[in-house]
Simulated scan of single mutants.
Amino acid sequence: MIIKTEHLIIRDFQKKDAAGLLEYLSHPRVNCFVGDRLYSEESALAYIFHSSEDMLRYAVCLREDDFIIGDVFALCEYTDTYSIGWHFNKHFEGKGLAYEAATGFLDYLFRDADARRVYGFVEDDNLRSKRLCERLGMRCEGCMKEFISFICHPDGTPRYEDTCIYAILNKEWKNNKNR
């Protein structure tokens, strides 16, 4: 699978992506991705080559040199509903690249994967991802208070996080694209 945008290529992972992947997933900045934390190139290679069959996971690379700057992923939960997410290297923030990648990926899901509905969970304090979802035309369908815990407080008790759900339907995506 290859998606080409103005500045990016979204493609299947390659072995050469391990070092770049390790760079941005060695310290996930969002607690919900603590489970994706990588500790070595070997763990990065395992991440690249051992995803579940229901998971679509692609490298986001700069078009000019094919350097990995992030990844996008989607889990098919029903025949036509996908839960999506993304990771991006902080050194490439503020340039519109996450928006460009997410737009290309949503186009792919709605056009080629026959998605009817796409949604994503975003921690309430993750302002960058919330803004990205809104720029993509996704609506906030609510915020679940103390929804889940990914980390613990220093005393070992769970730290529960407020989590928003953003979603968009295929017909809404197409309407937004036609404007």
Rank of each mutant, 00 (worst) to 15 (best):
I2A: 00
I2R: 11
I9Q: 07
I10F: 06
R11D: 06
Q14K: 08
G20A: 01
L21N: 06
L25V: 03
L25W: 02
H27A: 12
H27I: 06
R29P: 04
R29G: 15
C32E: 08
F33N: 05
G35T: 03
Y39G: 11
S43L: 04
H50M: 05
S51D: 03
S52H: 07
D54S: 08
R57G: 03
Y58I: 02
A59C: 04
V60N: 02
D65C: 13
D66F: 00
D71W: 13
V72F: 03
C76Y: 03
T79A: 15
T79G: 15
D80E: 15
S83F: 02
G85S: 13
H87P: 15
N89P: 09
H91I: 13
F92H: 15
F92I: 13
E93L: 14
L97P: 14
L97H: 15
Y99A: 13
Y99K: 15
E100N: 11
A102R: 05
G104N: 09
D107S: 09
R111H: 10
R116T: 05
V118Y: 02
V118W: 04
Y119M: 01
Y119L: 02
V122C: 04
D124Y: 07
L127I: 12
R128V: 02
R131K: 14
C133I: 00
E134R: 12
C140N: 15
C143F: 09
F147T: 00
H153S: 04
G156Y: 05
G156H: 07
G156A: 07
Y160L: 11
I165G: 03
I168W: 07
N170H: 10
K171H: 04
W173S: 06
N175T: 10
N175S: 14
N176E: 01
K177Q: 08
R179P: 00
